[in-house]
């Protein structure tokens, strides 16, 4: 995750629901009310790059325990029903519909709060889906020499459906596996020629 990593920057733009813990006069625009005071308790969806620091910076309350500016919840992409669906059958959930950067969003959220159960579920999800991705990649890469045109060969509608639901990280994995298979095959053929 480099500073210049485009995907990491785009992940940081994902919004998560936050609740403000204090009145802030100048920030009404965050809740669609420019010029108005943003009231404590207001629920606003903030991009991760903003929410993260607001959530971990303590407002430095002098009296009671130190509280932060905002409290945050898990984003809709990691809702309980999504997680339950992943538990039931990881292959049946189009992760992309939840978030194009599903995994990196999830890892980010887990950095912010302890979610041991979520972490286990996601790990299992990835393992199961990665195997399926590798399978599809091999089928396409090994098929007709031209990679992308092979998509209507051998893979049924269900496969395409699954591939459409890959998140950005999985897509990269797919592309690597696909290119690797293809390059390996080309190399083998070249060897035979000489």
């Amino acid at each position: 995750m480099s500073y210049y990593d485009i995907d990491s920057i785009l992940t940081d733009a994902e919004k998560i629901p936050c609740t403000f813990q204090l009145d802030v006069p100048e920030l009404g625009y965050l809740d669609n009310n420019p010029g108005q005071t943003l009231k404590a308790g207001a629920r606003v969806a903030l991009p991760l790059w903003l929410a993260e620091l607001l959530a971990i910076t303590s407002a430095g309350g002098s009296d009671d325990q130190t509280k932060s500016y905002v409290a945050f919840d898990l984003p809709p992409a990691l809702r309980n029903d999504v997680v339950q669906a992943l538990k039931a059958e990881p292959l049946a959930v189009p992760l992309r519909d939840q978030s194009a950067h599903f995994y990196s969003l999830a890892t980010h959220m887990m950095d912010l709060s302890e979610e041991p159960e979520l972490s286990t579920t996601l790990r299992k999800t990835f393992v199961k889906r990665a195997a399926e991705i590798a399978l599809h990649a091999r089928k396409l890469g090994g098929g007709a020499g031209k990679g992308d045109e092979g998509s209507n060969l051998g893979v049924g509608g269900a496969g395409e459906e699954f591939l459409r639901g890959l998140d950005e990280w999985e897509r990269r994995l797919f592309r690597k596996a696909h290119d690797g298979t293809k390059a390996g095959k080309e190399w083998m053929e070249k060897i035979k020629k000489y």
Binding site: L22, D23, V24, P25, E26, L27, L30, W49, L50, L53, L54, T57, A59, G60, G61, S62, Y69
Partner: peptide
Amino acid sequence: AAEQATACTLLVNHM
């Protein structure tokens, strides 16, 4: 610590 609301605005602007 004394001006929490302003501090919050400043943080948002800075971020």
